[in-house]
């Protein structure tokens, strides 16, 4: 049974809750594949996408997920470079609240912004990525993709490769994979590694070859190119040579290892084009699964999940 008002992060979810979402995403994915991609389930419910950061992929995914379930979806793109400019988040949230929003999906550059919003509004809040904190729906779709391909998580080794320091995708994936029983490795330059990451129960590698050896899944993170300007690594070229995933490196992983990437990709930087488009890549499948997982979340958050109702 789904009991949470909000979905703010994977860290606070139990393995049961994660599995509930993954299970509900299976029938949702069937709907996406039908000719008539619409069920009346959330008719009369409104889902507001409140995006303080540009995002095409996640916003469209949430929008379609809502529409396939017949919810009314509205996108609000707040174009501010500064978090202190203009109306406060709480005021914006309260405005949306009294307009009758049922669910607010928020993307924000400040870690913890969804928590602030959730504390002040009645509508349910879904975190669609906050700062360097969490991106729970991305991790859930990654988990769903892995589960579809591999069946289970126990005994799997998943390598997360790249800029762990700034990555909310990495954090959410680490929590989710660990809770479901997979072994997690992280790999990247030490200047892009968060402090104390070893305390999170992951193995830390600074050589990509070692990190890939025997891995079942490689999740490649997007490199934010502006990090280079801040001196966190010398050049994009060196990053690509030291850390980029190419065919030669993929071959070090287990045969048939899966390659994931949350997108959008910097082809030729963190991932080579032949790997991105290769047979082991599930990158396009992730996009489809993203819609299914978000449908499952919207469905669960609009009610819950009990087995049967007496007739």
């Amino acid at each position: 049974m789904w009991k949470r008002k909000d979905l703010l992060g994977i860290k606070e979810l139990s393995a049961d809750e994660i599995n509930q979402i993954l299970d509900q995403a299976v029938p949702m994915k069937d709907i996406i594949k039908r000719d008539i991609k619409k069920v009346p389930t959330l008719r009369g419910k409104s889902v507001i996408n409140l995006f303080y950061e540009p995002s095409t992929r996640t916003r469209t995914s949430f929008e379609l997920a809502g529409k396939y379930l017949s919810a009314d979806t509205v996108n609000i793109a707040v174009s501010t470079s500064s978090v202190v400019k203009g109306e406060t988040l709480i005021d914006t949230g309260k405005t949306i609240d009294v307009m009758g929003a049922d669910i607010v999906v928020i993307r924000h550059q400040a870690s913890g912004a969804p928590h602030l919003l959730a504390k002040h509004i009645k509508a349910k809040v879904i975190n669609a990525g906050d700062g360097a904190h969490e991106h729970p729906t991305q991790a859930l779709l990654d988990l769903f993709t892995i589960k579809e391909a591999k069946g289970a998580f126990e005994g799997l080794t998943v390598t997360i490769l790249g800029d762990i320091l700034h990555s909310r995708v990495a954090r959410s994936n680490i929590w989710g994979l660990s809770k479901l029983g997979a072994k997690v490795r992280v790999a990247g330059p030490s200047t892009l590694m968060p402090p104390g990451i070893k305390e999170w129960g992951v193995e830390v590698y600074h050589r990509v070859e070692e990190a890939l050896e025997g891995a079942d899944v490689v999740n490649v993170l997007r490199l934010q190119l502006e990090r280079q300007q801040k001196g966190l690594f010398p050049t994009i070229r060196e990053y690509a040579r030291q850390w980029g995933l190419n065919a030669r490196r993929v071959a070090l992983a287990k045969p048939g290892a899966l390659v994931l990437h949350p997108g959008p990709m910097n082809r030729g930087v963190e991932i080579s084009p032949d790997v991105a488009d290769g047979l082991q890549s599930l990158i396009t499948e992730q996009v489809t699964n993203g819609v299914a997982v978000r449908m499952a979340i919207l469905y669960l958050m609009s009610g819950g999940g009990v087995a049967d109702v007496p007739r």
Binding site: D30, V39, T41, Y299, L300, S302, G303, V306, V309
Partner: peptide
């Protein structure tokens, strides 16, 4: 056929049934 997503009482129920595959 799983009709869960087509029920007309979802908004009045406290909890929603688990959706199975059609």
């Amino acid at each position: 056929l799983d009709i869960t997503l087509y029920r007309d009482d979802l908004t009045t129920l406290d909890h929603q049934p688990v959706v199975h595959r059609t």
